[in-house]
């Protein structure tokens, strides 16, 4: 997905990569749901929302051990760099599935579809296909990932504030302080009150998610996040909350290398520049994070209306999705 583990992005996934786990031909062919589950992890980098959710996926064809996927963007002139990122990410995600030897992506109805499809499926670098572009695709990706991280931080911090944590507690929080109570792909356990702190309203969002929890076979859907607990006041008080926004934040913060792993004791939340947040700058950082969130959401609205003008439906309108907590 956009900004996922740089190590994954670096090694172009070829059929040979799958050898470590299973011989593709031996594994059971992937289901359509499994393919969708992987595509759900690919985001439109400008909106930080999944291709599946946005209604971009047009067609999936499974011809074991090969899979091909066709997708369309809201406009024919969407940035070639963004289209490129989505196409490469989709291909890599699908090729990571057991039973898939190779994946082919087909971008449709785009002014540069020929160059993008040919380049991505042959594993060429963006710069070779679009020599006129300003700057490389990885620099653009990094910039958008940083914005996405900030927008996700806004939602994660909202959850923590509503759960009753103070700004001082929030800026000190490290990944090691967060205890996840359920596996991300299992339904959220019915907990949350042991610390005497009521579940925040965002929990209802999670319950909506529950109904979809079983829709894919084993792929992870980060939106079904279970609950998490942090212990404050010297570990004596546990505060529980729905974990999805924190999980989404962690995923992006890890992709950017700001934190790594559950034992990391560096501060979880950061300024726009990636530094720890001094307590007296909490409000300003929060306002900038809100701005990043509003911007991504606002652009989602523009795209949704253009999508409608083009295809007669609005895909998934950004603001029909659960309002962030």
């Amino acid at each position: 997905m956009a900004g996922s583990n740089p190590a994954d992005a670096g090694g172009d996934a070829t059929p040979a990569d799958a050898d470590e786990t299973a011989t593709p031909a031996d594994a059971a062919p992937p289901t359509r749901e499994a393919v969708l589950g992987r595509l759900d992890r690919v985001t439109d980098p400008e909106l930080d929302r999944s291709l599946v959710e946005l209604g971009y996926v047009d067609e999936i064809e499974i011809d074991p051990p090969r899979v091909s996927v066709a997708f369309r963007l809201p406009t024919a002139w969407c940035s070639p760099a963004f289209a490129w990122m989505m196409a490469t990410d989709a291909r890599e995600e699908i090729e990571a599935l057991d039973g898939v030897a190779s994946a082919t992506v087909e971008l449709r109805d785009h002014v540069h579809e020929t160059e993008i499809n040919d380049g991505v499926n042959r594993g060429l670098p963006f710069e070779e296909v679009f020599p006129d572009a300003d700057g490389g695709v990885e620099a653009v990706r990094r910039e958008l990932d940083e914005k996405a991280r900030l927008a996700r931080q806004y939602r994660a911090v909202s959850t923590l504030l509503e759960a009753g944590l103070s700004p001082e507690q929030i800026v000190r929080l490290a990944p090691a302080d967060v205890e996840f109570d359920g596996a991300p792909d299992s339904p959220p356990p019915i907990t949350g009150d042991e610390a005497g702190v009521g579940r925040d309203d965002g929990a209802s969002t999670e319950r909506d998610g529950e109904t979809e929890a079983g829709r894919d076979d084993g792929t992870t859907d980060d939106r079904d996040g279970g609950t998490a607990t942090v212990y404050v006041r010297g570990g004596t008080v546990g505060v529980a909350f729905s974990a999805s926004s924190i999980r989404e934040y962690l995923e992006k913060a890890e992709a950017l290398g700001l934190v790594s792993g559950a034992d990391d004791d560096r501060p979880l939340f950061r300024t726009p520049d990636g530094n720890p947040i001094p307590a007296d700058e909490f409000d300003m950082v929060r306002r900038r994070a809100r701005l990043a969130h509003v911007n991504m959401d606002g652009q989602g609205g523009v795209c949704a209306y253009l999508h409608e003008a083009r295809y007669g439906d609005r895909g998934v309108d950004a603001s029909n999705a659960p309002e962030s907590a």
Binding site: R288, A292, N295
Partner: peptide
């Protein structure tokens, strides 16, 4: 600045 409202406001 849309879709860069954030950069613009800052």
């Amino acid at each position: 600045g849309l879709p860069r409202l954030d950069d613009f406001c800052w």
